[in-house]
Write a protein that binds this DNA or RNA. Structure first.
Ligand SMILES: [Mn+2]
Ligand SMILES: [Mn+2]
Ligand SMILES: [Mn+2]
Ligand SMILES: [Mn+2]
Lengths: 158, 158
DNA sequence: TCAAAAGTGCAGCCAAGGCTATAATTTGAT
DNA sequence: ATCAAATTATAGCCTTGGCTGCACTTTTGA
């Protein structure tokens, strides 16, 4: 008598879905993702500015540009937006500084970034992939997911 | 004699970094994330179109709009871009259809989406959070990370 | 010291992804 | 068969996030 064979890895991942989520549920999810996407840049900027200030004492336009891999003009425009949003200060030809709320945001974003990286590393992902993926994933993790990541790390301490 | 107390959860996640990645390394990572961000919409559209066709027989503009939570005009413009990229066909006032390469992309994206959701569920994340987060995370997982996700799922089969 | 190099700022361009408003076509119910 | 509702299309507007080119400061080193 033959046992039913164990499903192959990924067997449930192929073929059409038999049922879609409710329209409004799906719209809510996509909307949340759009919102997160809209704040990614802001988060990356304040995090990077905080890191540059912490390690080098100051955050200069060219440094930000080189680390992000964009032109300096792009950085200047982005910084203007951050200024409008009261996350940074800057005077012409001087460095860029975080406001109090900018520092607060940077602290939250930095902690989240590290948690995501630590989680991916704990999962056994090679460090460079972990760092690269975390740079995108970090902007799309809910509180519940962050908590699960933290728990996993705790449970897999050496 | 007092033992060194175990680090509190998240203890390594606070405070400034003592060292930053090399400039070019960080630029490469941010660049990869930018690239992924640029293709998110494309991926979500073809996945959704495939799902609509699979369950309802056709993908109409209004259905896509309602499920994404955007205006129908936004969908029409996005579909024009997908057409330019040869991922879909459509004739005026008729439905939207995937080309062969559109179907191939949809299949890959769908499988990846399900794998990410399955992973988050296996981690113990509540289903609605898992689905919502996956909608963003799915676009930022490298092959190495996907593999690690699949392995985790395998190791945590019921 | 003072010119070259580096850094910063600004203008203008583009594509993407949103929106609203209006027009055109198709569909469906009497 | 008709006409109202639904759907699809188009036009025009906005913001963001890229870019290049050019001008202006600041820094640096010979
Ligand atoms: Mn990031
Ligand atoms: Mn980050
Ligand atoms: Mn998605
Ligand atoms: Mn998806």
């Amino acid at each position: 008598m033959s046992r039913k064979p164990t499903a192959l890895p990924g067997a449930s991942m192929v073929g059409p879905p038999d049922r879609l989520p409710r329209e409004d549920t799906q719209a809510r999810r996509f909307g949340a993702t759009r919102l997160a996407r809209a704040t990614e840049l802001t988060e990356d900027y304040v995090e990077l500015i905080a890191d540059l200030m912490a390690t080098g004492g100051e955050a200069r336009t060219v440094d930000i540009a080189r680390r992000l891999g964009v032109s300096h003009a792009t950085v200047i425009k982005a910084v203007a937006r951050l200024k409008r949003e009261a996350l940074v200060n800057s005077k012409p030809y001087r460095g860029i500084f975080l406001t109090d709320s900018g520092q607060a945001l940077a602290a939250r974003v930095r902690a989240r970034h590290r948690l995501v990286v630590a989680f991916l590393l704990a999962l056994g992902i090679p460090p460079d992939d972990a760092e690269a993926d975390a740079e995108g994933i970090e902007h799309h993790v809910s509180a519940a997911t962050l908590q699960a990541f933290a728990r996993f790390i705790e449970d897999h301490k050496p």
